[in-house]
Simulated assay, not measured.
Amino acid sequence: MNTLVKHTTPQAQKVWFTDAKMYVLLSDGRELGIPLEWFPVLRDSTEAQRMNWRLIGNGVGIHWEDLDEDLSIAGLL
Rank of each mutant, 00 (worst) to 15 (best):
A12M: 02
D70M: 01
I73A: 14
R50E: 03
S45Y: 07
L25F: 12
M1C: 03
R43E: 14
M51D: 14
E47P: 02
M22C: 10
L36I: 06
F17Y: 13
S45H: 10
D19Q: 07
G75E: 11
L4N: 07
R54Q: 10
A12R: 01
G59Y: 00
E65K: 12
A20S: 12
T9M: 11
L25N: 03
P10D: 07
K21S: 12
T18I: 06
E65W: 00
P10G: 11
L26N: 10
L42Q: 10
V60M: 09
R54S: 03
P40H: 00
D28N: 06
W38R: 15
F17H: 00
L4E: 09
Q13R: 14
N2T: 01
V41I: 13
W53M: 05
N2M: 01
P35N: 11
L76H: 15
T46D: 08
V15K: 11
V60I: 05
F39I: 11
S72N: 13
T9S: 13
S72Q: 14
K14R: 15
S72G: 09
S45D: 10
A20V: 09
M1S: 11
G59T: 07
L67Y: 01
Y23R: 13
G57S: 01
L36H: 12
Q13M: 06
G75H: 12
L77Y: 15
T9R: 01
Q11E: 15
E69F: 12
P40C: 07
F17A: 04
L36Y: 06
R30P: 09
T9V: 13
S72H: 02
L76Y: 15
K14I: 06
K21M: 03
W53Y: 07
D68R: 05
